[in-house]
Amino acid sequence: MSEPIIELVDLTKKYRLFTAVDHINLTVRKGEIFGFLGPNGAGKSTTILMMLGLTEPTEGSVRVCGIDPERQPLGVKRRVGYLPEDVGFYDNRDGVFNLIYTARLNSIPEDEAKTRALELLQLVGLEDAAQKNAGQYSRGMRQRLGLADVLIKNPEIAILDEPTSGIDPQGVKSFLNLILKLRDEHGLTVLFSSHNLHQVEEVCDRVAIFNSGKLQAVGDIEALSNQVFGESGHNLEEIYNCFFEGGTEQ
């Protein structure tokens, strides 16, 4: 639990007119389920993209599994599974193909990829839709297929960007259970970005609260509660509301 797996130092991303990510310092430890909280445009997704090496930081440095994603993007991408917000698949291909394709991009031999894909489809409850074209999947099915897509490469870290949107509450519950299970049994580190405070509170060991590109607070709920209210016992929603006077975003 103590070994840092993601380290962000003074991470900054500036676009022409505004600063999307502003000097963020953050460490995620191995085996943690880490929550990214914040409204849209707070800089969560940009930070994630910089962690994957998909966007270059303007300043600062990123270390994921000890690797600089800017220098060795493949090393990072091999170890990190990323589920983008509102994930898309090749609509004219079935679920199995999409999974096998991802597996083969990860240099998994075709036979093994097929077995794994079928296993994972079963795991996320899509075994009946395996032969269906991805274009016919509902949003929730896509998210679940996305999770399978993340897992098929057998990652050390899973970065999930709004993974639960569009999934029914029952599905969310098993989704979150699955995440916990993966962490517990395989030591998977999960980066969980969401604006659903309850879900975050339920599974995350620690959270980081983003606002306007700045990191407002980092820590477990208790630490944050102490930090904000000077006492423990407050829940995440109360903490969150302190940062964003006004309503929470549900």
Partner: peptide, 13 residues
């Protein structure tokens, strides 16, 4: 289709 970012997060350039 939203496949670009997903594919890009795979270990490919």
């Amino acid at each position: 289709r939203g496949t670009l970012s997903r594919i890009l997060s795979q270990p490919i350039y």
